[in-house]
């Protein structure tokens, strides 16, 4: 169960990193971003039809998400079952806060994903002032000129950062990579780096757009 969670989590991490790299292209302008969106669809093009890789990858992600969420809720319910009588004195220890954060953070991420997909892939809801047409780049820029959209993203990214911070370390522990003091330190450091990089990396485009550093034309 834990193994499933770690593996699906790891896949997410990989995806998120790629995705972030892509998003950062918005700094290169709308074309660069659209090119990237196209590129996503044309990887392995001769072998697979247009969007084929993306679809495989999407399927994988959906399976992973299902597995991840399933194991999360399974563990959660087992934990509840393992202590049906709660303590009276609530422990203020950091540790509990962090584990709660994993769960609620995960749920927040799920909600965010729903919104995010609705917004950018499925419905392409445009809440922004400018027309976007077919350009993903324009859609993004237009959307992030609305402050509350940015707020949702920033909050979600904070959740993501926290989730990854513990998650990456936790995955390496679950996979059994950390049984010496040194490897443990490395795992902690890696987790911190990945968490920071993704949170900050993702946060840059929306903020940049909001504050007008990147403008659509």
């Amino acid at each position: 169960m834990k193994l499933l969670m770690a593996l699906s989590g790891a896949l997410f991490v990989f995806y998120v990193l790629v995705h972030m790299y892509g998003n950062l292209k918005i700094f290169g302008g709308v074309e660069a971003f659209d090119e990237y969106a196209l590129h996503l669809r044309t990887i392995l093009m001769p072998i697979l039809p247009f969007g084929g890789f993306l679809w495989i990858f999407r399927a994988l992600l959906v399976v992973a998400l299902a597995a991840h969420a399933y194991s999360a809720f399974y563990l959660w319910s087992r934990a509840r079952g393992a202590r049906t009588t709660r303590y009276v004195a609530k422990q203020a220890a950091q540790a509990t806060i962090r584990s709660r954060m994993m769960r609620w953070g995960g749920v927040a991420l799920l909600l965010f994903l729903v919104w995010h997909l609705l917004q950018f892939t499925i419905l392409k809801i445009n809440v922004g002032p400018d027309a976007a047409g077919d350009s993903a780049g324009k859609l993004v820029i237009s959307s992030f000129q609305v402050w509350w959209v940015v707020l949702i993203y920033v909050l979600a990214l904070a959740a993501l950062g926290m989730h990854l911070w513990h998650g990456v370390w936790s995955a390496s522990q679950t996979l059994g990579w950390t049984n010496s003091a040194k490897s443990r330190r490395t795992a902690k450091a890696t987790a911190t780096v990945i968490a920071l990089v993704t949170a900050v990396g993702f946060a840059l485009p929306p903020l940049a757009i909001l504050f007008g550093i990147v403008k659509g034309n």
């Binding site: 563990l75 934990a79 079952g81 509990t96 962090r98 513990h166």
Partner: peptide, 14 residues
């Protein structure tokens, strides 16, 4: 036995 699963919280070791 009905113990919960570990989610690497670390409170145990502390």
């Amino acid at each position: 036995e009905g113990f919960g699963g570990c989610t690497n919280v670390g409170a145990c070791s502390a």
